[in-house]
Design a protein around this nucleic acid. Structure first.
Length: 556
DNA sequence: GCCGTTTTCGGCCCGACTGTTTTCAGTCG
């Protein structure tokens, strides 16, 4: 058995905490497991070493009940206590959390009183008027639940881009190993880097269709033959995978046609069917300059005479908006700085949450001092990479920036974001953000709408007024590369550029792995047709320092 | 369940909102 790491331990403690909250009236018991999970995540020492040296029980939050659970998980990889809890509930019980307004307390109540443990069961009870019998469940709640279930069902056939990429990459690798396969290309909305996808598409060139079909049959349980050249299969994570088979000299056309979009392909006309082994060759034959897949949502780019070189991840020379364990990040300051340096960055901006973001472990002024001292201690170790001290500071309901003036003056940069009071009317929300943009401490405007793809709509704001003001005040607007945010939406970026806004690609990283969110972020910029020059963090460290210095002089 | 100490129970982390209440519980960030 492999060595259990601290993340496994934390995950199990979190799951136990969830189960406890379902049934235990004492909220502090569940919270104790959660706190222990967070404490384990933040451990510097190896968990096995800690147990051996007796340090485990000195960890704050670990006592005589949780301690043995951690020891068991570390030794065996599992927990009998957790197994026992799992046995008391149906396996899909936590699916119900996808319904807005339902938390663990209410889910526990639904299960205890009505035996509900799945979306189907919940829907039946809600439609049958059974919920009103429960304490705390009224008419509005029943309506909200029915609405929530409908939304959840619609989302069942939609996936975030990374899920599609993972499946597509895995299948491509398997297919490429088959002798009869000449070539295989990922196509469809995944190739267009659309933020939400419905299926995965692959174009497979071969001289032996039968061999490919039987290989696909062996790879999947559910396979459906649509026609002689098209096969549909269901991947493990429920994504539909379409295989488009073709002869080698048809690959160019098949890749083009199955990449889409439909509008783009239609505009290509007969050229889309030309014989070619690659797409590049097909474009050449048609006398059309190659259009990047990200730019094929509509046909506009086809008619352009010249193509611009779209920004690429390697163009980024640094980034901002990186979290650490000082607030809700999972990796330490040094680990995150190391991750930035490993990407070859000239600079990185650390920005943990501000103190109003209490739930995210926002930093008090005291902790801020400690953080700045730690940054100073690490400067040499990560040189020549430059470290900027920042904050992801809350835009408070009145549009002022958390911390206020003297403290804000300590930062090299500020990412101003909204984390509370999401449901303000559009006008008020717009005024709130406009006021934030007026604050000379603000360098970047963070995730503009606060949307969470497939789970939460963003708040409504007047984009054009925001873009105008940002341009006027010289505030850079963030492209948040987190795959579940991708905020601002690429569809709005053109309007920002027209008004003179500068954009910057940030990972909003809460772990080392999430530093690669800059890549997803770059795709957003590419979909909007942006070049490296239009992105703030393609600038050199000297240029960025100069810009930040100029901003500082505005603070008066 | 953990913690601390005023040693053996009582407190534990916030604030707004919503829908259900008639004084509050649950959700959410």
């Amino acid at each position: 058995m492999g060595r259990t790491d601290k993340w496994t331990v934390a995950r199990i403690l979190d799951e136990i905490s969830h189960y406890i909250e379902l049934s235990d009236p004492n909220p502090f018991k569940a919270r104790a497991f959660e706190r222990a999970a967070r404490a384990v995540e933040k451990l510097d020492a190896d968990i096995h070493d800690l147990i051996r040296t007796g340090g485990l029980y000195k960890t704050p939050g670990v006592g005589k009940a949780i301690g043995p659970v951690i020891e068991e998980v570390a030794a065996s990889g599992g927990s009998k206590y957790l197994e026992e809890l799992r046995g008391q509930y149906p396996p899909g019980i936590f699916d119900l959390l996808r319904i807005p307004g339902l938390g663990l307390k209410k889910i526990g109540q639904l299960h205890a009183d009505l035996g509900i443990g799945s979306l189907d069961g919940l829907e039946e009870a809600a439609r049958g008027g059974k919920l009103s019998k429960l304490r705390g469940f009224g008419a509005k709640t029943a309506l909200k639940i029915i609405d929530g279930i409908e939304k959840a069902r619609r989302r069942e056939s939609q996936f975030l881009l990374p899920a599609g990429l993972e499946v597509a990459g895995w299948i491509r690798e398997k297919l490429a190993a088959i002798d009869a396969v000449e070539d295989v290309e990922i196509t469809g909305s995944v190739r267009r880097r659309l933020e939400i996808i419905r299926n995965v598409n692959l174009a497979v060139s071969t001289k032996d269709f039968d061999a490919i079909r039987s290989a696909i049959d062996q790879m999947f349980d559910q396979v459906e033959e649509i026609d002689e050249r098209t096969v549909k299969a269901l991947a493990r994570n429920e994504i539909d995978v379409w295989f488009h088979l073709c002869k080698p000299n048809e690959l160019g056309a098949t890749v083009l046609r199955t990449t889409g979009s439909a509008e783009f392909v239609a505009k290509m006309g007969d050229a889309a069917n030309a014989a070619a082994r690659t797409e590049q060759e097909l474009f050449k034959k048609a006398g059309i300059a190659f259009v990047e897949p990200e730019r094929r949502e509509n046909a506009d780019d086809l008619s352009r005479k010249r193509r611009v070189r779209l920004v690429e991840p390697d163009d980024l020379r640094g980034t901002f908006h990186v979290h650490t364990t000082y607030s809700d990040g999972r990796n330490s300051m040094l680990e995150m700085l190391g991750a930035a340096r490993d990407r070859g960055y000239e600079y990185v901006g650390i920005s943990d949450h501000s103190k109003a973001a209490y739930y995210a472990g926002g930093l008090t002024e005291e902790r801020l001092k400690e953080q700045h001292a730690e940054i100073d201690r690490h400067r040499k170790a990560v040189a020549p990479m430059r470290v900027f001290r920042g904050s992801e500071a809350d835009i408070l309901p009145d549009g002022s920036i958390d911390y206020g003036s003297p403290t804000l003056g300590l930062f090299d940069f500020v990412v101003a974001s909204i984390h509370s009071r999401f449901n303000m009317p559009k006008d008020e929300m717009t005024e709130r953000i406009l006021r934030a943009l007026d604050d000379p401490h603000v360098t970047f405007l963070g995730h503009l709408t606060g949307r969470l793809l497939l789970s939460r709509d963003g708040y409504s704001v007047d984009y054009d007024r925001i873009f105008e003001r940002a341009a006027e005040r010289g505030v850079v607007i963030e492209i948040n590369g987190s795959p579940k945010r991708l905020d601002v939406d690429w569809r709005h970026i053109g309007r920002a550029i027209e008004r003179g806004v500068v954009l910057s690609i940030h990972p909003d990283a809460h772990s080392i792995a999430e530093m690669s969110n800059v890549i997803t972020g770059t795709w957003v910029a590419r979909k909007a047709g942006l070049t490296a020059k239009q992105i703030f963090n393609t600038r050199s460290v000297e240029e960025v320092e100069e810009w930040l210095e100029a901003r500082r002089s505005l603070r008066g």
